[in-house]
């Protein structure tokens, strides 16, 4: 194991605790932040991170939490996964309990509402950037490109079926991936 791949349990905990404390806007705001941090710290390269993100999407549970767990596991084993999970959980649970004790209708406060509106408005841009980075870091071939585009079109046409379509697309893609790990067909 190289140095960079071994961030230490406290390093993992504090990274995810930091992200979880500062990032408003849910999973799609958190994923790009996590992607940036783990690659800038040299824990994982960006393409490898998107692989973990794909696995996180295929399991139930909050996306950012699942992704953090997988990053922790890849870099420091099961203990790393638990530290990453605690890092994601602890700050929001604490902040939410304090907030719940103090206010009941924060969404109705005008200043807070404006802050939220601004923060929330960045999410479409973050998702677009995530899609672009995933596109650039993917090793494409005709089958992968066609299936990704076809699945996207199907999901956009029938968003209610997005989860079943995700698994159908994965299964079809699996058949088209060469077992040799070559560049498919």
């Amino acid at each position: 194991m190289e140095e960079t791949r071994n961030p230490g349990l406290f390093g993992i905990f504090s990274l995810f605790a930091g992200i979880s404390t500062l990032t408003i806007g849910g999973g799609y705001a958190m994923i790009p932040v996590i992607a940036r941090k783990v690659s800038s710290k040299g824990w994982l390269d960006e393409a490898e991170f998107y692989g973990l993100f794909a696995t996180a999407q295929s399991l139930p549970g909050p996306m950012a939490y699942n992704t953090a767990l997988l990053v922790g596991k890849r870099t420091a084993g099961a203990a790393g996964a638990l530290c990453a999970g605690l890092g994601i959980l602890l700050p929001p649970v604490t902040i939410v309990m304090i907030a719940a004790a103090l206010v009941s209708t924060a969404g109705e406060n005008a200043v807070m509402g404006a802050f939220l509106r601004g923060a929330g408005a960045t999410v479409p841009g973050l998702v677009a950037a995530l899609l672009l980075r995933m596109t650039l870091k993917r090793s494409w071939n005709p089958a992968r490109a066609l299936l990704s585009a076809g699945a996207a079109a199907a999901m956009i046409a029938a968003p209610v079926w997005a989860v079943p379509l995700f698994f159908v697309a994965s299964a079809i893609a699996f058949l088209f991936e060469r077992p040799e790990g070559g560049n498919g067909s």
Binding site: Y50, S58, R138, A169, A171
Partner: peptide
């Protein structure tokens, strides 16, 4: 395969 399908979910 999961990467291929995840691309669609993000789209």
């Amino acid at each position: 395969s999961l990467r291929t399908a995840t691309f669609a979910l993000v789209a």
